[in-house]
Design a protein around this nucleic acid. Structure first.
Length: 478
RNA sequence: CGGGGCGUAGCGCAGCUUGGUAGCGCGUUUGGUUCGGGACCAAAAGGUCGCAGGUUCAAAUCCUGUCGCCCCGACCA
């Protein structure tokens, strides 16, 4: 007799009871990652990397469409180069890893393992940019970076992580600002349409902004445990780095001017976000657009005549239609496979057995709703594509719903405290660092961003009661 | 960096208090019966007990150090 599904589910911690444990169980048991022996560094296994590859592909298409080209810059940054932008160095110094030896020789100048590449890219831009005709420079790099964090969690904060960092140079502040906002828009569209994660976009406070930036903009998502996750940032660096790295051009008028630069980045952290936004007690739930397998075919009673043949036929037909399909012909019972593939988050499961063949139909089950659907074998690829779109949209709607139900306005501190224990809080803030620090100390919540769609819900700061004009999002964050 | 927990077969764990032949469940392999929500029988393989020192006739077990992981806090572009 088959084990009850409830018993199986108990193998993964309940996400209501212990979200952290649930998260760890899911990523390990679905074969996304493994822990390595290197402090704070994870191994991304093929299933997890498959998600990353799809993210890369979708983002690259968007970067190309906005005129950017990919390039690659060195992993090592000479110390002297890193030191040229003071605020930047101060922000990153505590978490830089250093190379001090080459072979057995001690290096004359130690090398930083890049924590981000503004410095080395800035030094190259300085060589490449001479004239207004060379502008704008629009590049992106897919790379790994290292930040020696004090505490780490797979995907969310690791010592080494994979990311994309865009770096652009422009003639004017306004152009740089336009680029900064354009790429934030690309991120937002990507998060919502590809990852099915609704995000709040806005500007970071002075305290939370990137070291060395004039302004940092962010997209923030809410996880199912009510904590916020920064999913991507876009920085207007103004002429700060241009001055540090001597990035200048000769204008039409023949004057030597500093460039205005931007940078923007997203990382493998987004995968952690995906998991924490969409997952349920049965494991992962992947949006079809980033699911390494969009549909898994499970032949039922494989030994019966014709089953495997028919399953292979469907497999070929769906593959040919451009759907990412897996077929599980392993020697396991059907129930075991159902649970296994559910845990892995495959959007659609397709069952094909003797009864279906007799009826010229298949049975499909949606991962998001667990709804069982019988469908004729004719035009199966079209049916599947429609279903995948529905799942994609369904996940976004569900996530939006979750976020809305965990977002509230607060006009006094009691409301505020209650709100941040549950999710996002919108509140007025005077803008003083003292209030920001006090809120962090008392509630654990930080400013997430000043949203672009502002409204005055009160005229007083939620913390100190002094006049306040700006609405901010607050939350406890990863 | 502070407080707590952990490290024993691929995975999950017991054994440690009180030192004396390395254990259990799941998985794996082989054969057979099964197959629409985690099947069953039989046989088999699999381990320098995280690492390094120390105490001892003898260490998974006691002591010291170290590395890594988890939770909480601090820190965190």
């Amino acid at each position: 007799m088959a084990k009850k599904n409830e018993e199986f589910v108990a193998h993964i911690a309940s996400r209501e009871e212990d979200f952290s444990q649930w998260y760890t169980d899911v990523i390990l048991k679905t074969d996304m990652v493994d822990y390595s022996d290197v402090r704070g560094c994870m191994v991304i296994k093929p299933y997890g990397y498959g998600v990353w590859e799809l993210i890369q592909h979708e983002m690259d298409c968007r970067f190309k469409a906005t005129g950017h080209k990919n390039a690659y810059f060195p992993l090592f940054i000479p110390e002297s180069l890193l030191l040229k932008e003071a605020e930047h160095v101060e922000g990153f110094a505590p978490e830089v890893a250093w190379v001090t030896h080459g072979g057995s020789e001690k290096l004359a100048e130690r090398l930083a393992v890049r924590p981000t590449s503004e410095t080395i890219i800035g030094s190259m831009y300085s060589k490449w940019i001479q004239s207004y005709r060379d502008l704008p420079v629009l590049m992106n790099q897919w790379a790994n970076v290292v930040r020696w964090e004090k505490s780490t969690r797979p995907f969310l904060r690791t010592s080494e992580f994979l990311w994309q960092e865009g770096h652009t140079a422009h003639a004017t502040f306004e152009e740089a600002q336009e680029e900064t906002m354009r790429m934030l828009g690309v991120y937002r569209e990507f998060a919502e349409n590809v990852l099915a994660i609704p995000v709040i976009v806005g500007q970071k406070s002075e305290k939370e902004k990137f070291a060395g930036a004039k302004a940092t903009y962010t997209m923030e998502a809410l996880m199912q445990d009510g904590k916020a996750l920064q999913m991507g940032t876009s920085h207007n660096l103004a002429d700060n780095f241009a001055k540090g790295y001597d990035i200048t051009y000769l204008s039409k008028e023949g004057k030597l001017e500093y460039c205005f630069t931007t940078s923007w980045g997203t990382s493998t952290r987004m995968i952690g976000g995906l998991i924490m936004v969409h997952g349920d007690d049965r494991g992962l739930v992947l949006p079809p657009k980033v699911a390494p397998a969009q549909l898994v075919i499970l032949p039922i009673a494989m030994h019966k005549e014709g089953v495997l043949e028919k399953a292979r036929e469907l497999f070929a037909e769906l593959c040919a239609a451009g759907i990412r399909v897996e077929m599980d012909t392993s020697d396991q019972t059907a129930g075991w496979k159902f649970n296994q593939w559910e845990m892995k988050g495959v959007p659609i499961r397709l069952e094909i057995g003797p009864k279906d063949i007799a009826n010229n139909q298949v049975v499909m089950v949606r991962r998001d709703s667990l709804e069982k659907i019988s469908a004729p074998m004719e035009n199966l690829p079209e049916t599947v594509k429609r279903l995948l779109d529905e799942v994609q949209q369904g996940l976004f709607d569900k996530a939006l719903n979750m976020r809305e139900s965990r977002t509230m306005d607060a006009v006094d501190f009691d409301q505020f405290k209650e709100g941040v224990s549950n999710g996002f809080v919108r509140a007025m803030w005077c803008g003083e660092r003292a209030c920001e620090d006090s809120i962090k100390e008392q509630t654990g919540a930080t400013t997430r961003c000043k949203p672009f769609d502002q409204k005055a819900i009160s005229d007083k700061c939620v913390c100190c009661g002094k006049p306040a004009k700006e609405l901010y999002y607050f939350a406890r964050a990863y």
